[in-house]
Design a protein around this nucleic acid. Structure first.
Lengths: 229, 229
DNA sequence: TATAAATGACTGACCGGTCAGTCATAATCA
DNA sequence: TGATTATGACTGACCGGTCAGTCATTTATA
């Protein structure tokens, strides 16, 4: 069933392939390179779908292959083994986040505004994409992949937290933030997002959650100004 | 290794057994009954340890048996199958929580105070106990056990949330809470706790987190009063 | 045609679940 | 009370299905 939609590539290409005029035109061929990259992506996409649905151990590489439209053996041309596939999947998907976040770091706008942008970023780039599933995977399987957890902490989390902390401290000193709770625990900023990811995975069919609204409400809390009573 | 400590029972008892004065005294003998209860608990404890360490699929019932100090077959005298064992484990551990929380519901103390008690309750009864691991299991494996998720939502979460919502609304109307964010999203109250559970599972070795402090700080945020500027 | 890529049948380890047999305990009897 | 029989909790070897990983063969490419 299921059948993966995105990452067009292999089968389709191979099928239509036939009538190609000549191997001319392109210098020689990184057609191969391109195709290989496509394969790789197809495998990663299929792996994400399967790992998300069943978890690491219960995922069958046969199914990943079928979903990617290739033979099982092919997977081993691109990845050393199942675990390696899993780890590269997570690395590939989460690494880009750091840059995006760090880009915001030095912007010199009111923190309040930055926070709103952060929420928007999270909703658009994580919650509404497959990255949400990757984070869920990280949460579920991470404890059994110490190496992966370490990578994630070192390369992603610690950087984000450091950036946030600096940012928030500045804001607190400027008086933009009344309470120093978030300065001491920057994790609090992400908390509603994490909870939303978990919630939708478990209970969406019983009660949906409006992530954006919840995160915005939370940001409001964090930035509550002392105002005349 | 490992060897479970609690739940003394079988072998030990059988060994010392010999010199019992007579089968007198006790009506007849539910020694058997008692032993059985012990077994059940031993299995559940072992299962929790193994499931926590490896996840549902990767857990071997052979290991559970070894850890509980029994033979594999014995597990099947107490639980229908692996899945059933898993589900009963979670039910058994989490069900008691509801009562405890609902007990707080109608107390007529300032909500602020109640919130502090809630934090304390969470830290003492969840975070510092094995229930923390059960919640982690629920988060990790829940998506693959719809029945379990449903049970948890219906029997535990929805009740807690309902109670919280009522409580918070009252407080908001009384002016004890300035911002209505938590009224609309009671999940926010639990968010730091959830995040702490996940964090410790993944990153404790890199950076510890002071749950109590974080939760208290967060509660402070939620209850920030408008004060003269 | 020579080389590289892809395939999928195959292997062997692994593990959930079973069940015939054992033995401590309970029940019955003398 | 001590001997005898009945019970059923417990055991662990075993079976059958599953699946990660391999590799001889086929297919596509230069």
């Amino acid at each position: 069933m299921a059948r993966i939609a995105q990452t067009r590539s292999p089968r389709g290409v191979a099928g239509t392939r036939r009538g190609r005029p000549a191997s001319a035109a392109r210098p020689s061929a990184n057609i191969r390179k391109v195709r290989q990259a496509g394969r790789r992506e197809a495998i990663l996409a299929a792996a994400l779908a399967e790992f998300s649905a069943r978890g690491f151990t219960a995922t069958r590489l046969d199914d990943v292959a079928k979903r990617a439209g290739i033979a099982k053996g092919t997977i081993y041309l691109y990845f050393r083994d199942k675990e390696s596939l899993f780890q590269e999947l997570i690395r590939t998907m989460l690494s880009p986040l750091v840059g995006t976040i760090e880009a915001l770091r030095d912007a010199d706008v009111p923190v309040r505004m930055l926070a709103d942008q952060l929420v928007e970023l999270f909703v658009r780039e994580v919650f509404l994409t497959r990255r949400k599933d990757v984070i869920r995977l990280m949460i579920s399987e991470g404890p059994r992949f110490p190496k992966l957890a370490e990578f994630y902490y070192r390369e992603v989390l610690s950087r984000i937290i450091a950036a946030l902390r600096a940012l928030l401290r500045r804001a607190h000193e400027r008086g933009e933030i009344a309470n120093d709770a978030v300065v001491r625990f920057p994790q609090l900023i992400a908390a509603p997002g994490i909870v939303a990811i978990i919630w939708t995975g478990l209970f969406d069919r019983f009660e949906t959650i409006d992530v954006r609204a919840m995160m915005k409400a939370h940001v409001d809390l964090l930035f509550t100004q002392r105002s005349a009573a």
